[in-house]
């Protein structure tokens, strides 16, 4: 890149910080930022000026109805969450109870009554559980089958480097060389499964070293992992070209 090209990019950093860069130019500038420390410094220098702009609006007390509506929705949300948690707890208890009962009923043999045997069985379970726990934590190999681990990479320096580490059905996506994001922008990961693109739950952002990580809860059937820069809060479908993509075999 020659000096004129660089100066042109530097000039665009202010528009980028203000969110006024034309959509087609955003990806191009973000790729330039990944490799240009001078433009990164310019963005970091200008960002506080942009962050201060909303403070120039005269603060006013909002309509009281707004807070009432908002808090009603928040309380309803919290109540629904508590109900979900209680339901889940009940479901888990219900799943364990019948299994134990059936097992105890199956032990009613040889003329022994059910109740004393139940007590004995519980003692056996507690002791066996204790032994199992001790073995499991003693570094023995007697657990379940180990999850297979595979690593997939893409990208080339100085651009964004991406790596997906698959462990069983979950994945860990790690990015390097991510340029600083403009205010109000976040990273959002996407998976492609059977030709359909779905968002990965949980937005993320690069740290000061340009590194960013997120977890992909379900990699089953996924053939491509992508990352885009999106408005804070995320979107339901990508609105910009991926800054990184990793093919999963």
């Amino acid at each position: 890149m020659n000096a004129n090209d660089h100066d042109r990019r530097l000039e665009e950093v202010a528009a980028y910080a203000l969110g006024a860069l034309d959509p087609g130019q955003v990806v191009e500038l973000e790729q330039h930022l990944a490799a240009c420390s001078r433009c990164q410094e310019e963005l970091q220098w200008l960002s506080p000026a942009v962050r201060a702009l909303p403070e120039t609006v005269e603060p006013r007390t909002p309509p009281s109805a707004l807070k009432r509506r908002l808090m009603a929705e928040v309380h309803a949300d919290a109540a629904a969450e508590a109900r979900r948690a209680r339901g889940e707890e009940r479901r888990q208890r219900a799943e364990t109870r019948p299994g134990l009962g059936e097992w105890l009923r199956g032990l009613n043999v040889g003329g022994l009554t059910w109740k004393p045997l139940a007590g004995l069985a519980l003692v056996v379970i507690v002791i066996a559980g204790g032994i199992g726990y001790a073995v499991g934590n003693g570094g023995g190999s007697g657990g379940g089958p180990e999850a297979s681990v595979s690593t997939f990479r893409s990208g080339r320096a100085p651009g964004v480097l991406a790596e997906v580490r698959r462990e069983g059905s979950t994945g860990r996506l790690q990015l390097e060389n991510v340029p600083p994001l403009a205010d109000g922008r976040v990273l959002e990961a996407w998976v492609q499964r059977d030709g359909t693109v779905e968002p990965v739950k949980g937005l993320f952002a690069p740290d000061h070293r340009g590194e960013a990580t997120t977890t992909i809860a379900d990699l089953g059937g996924v053939d491509l992992v992508m990352v885009t820069v999106e408005p804070a809060g995320g979107t339901r479908a990508p609105t910009s070209a991926p800054i990184a993509s990793v093919r999963i075999d």
């Binding site: 909303p54 403070e55 908002l70």
Partner: peptide, 11 residues
């Protein structure tokens, strides 16, 4: 909300 709702609404 009480801290930032005002400026958010004004913005």
């Amino acid at each position: 909300y009480d801290r930032h709702g005002g400026v958010a609404w004004s913005l």
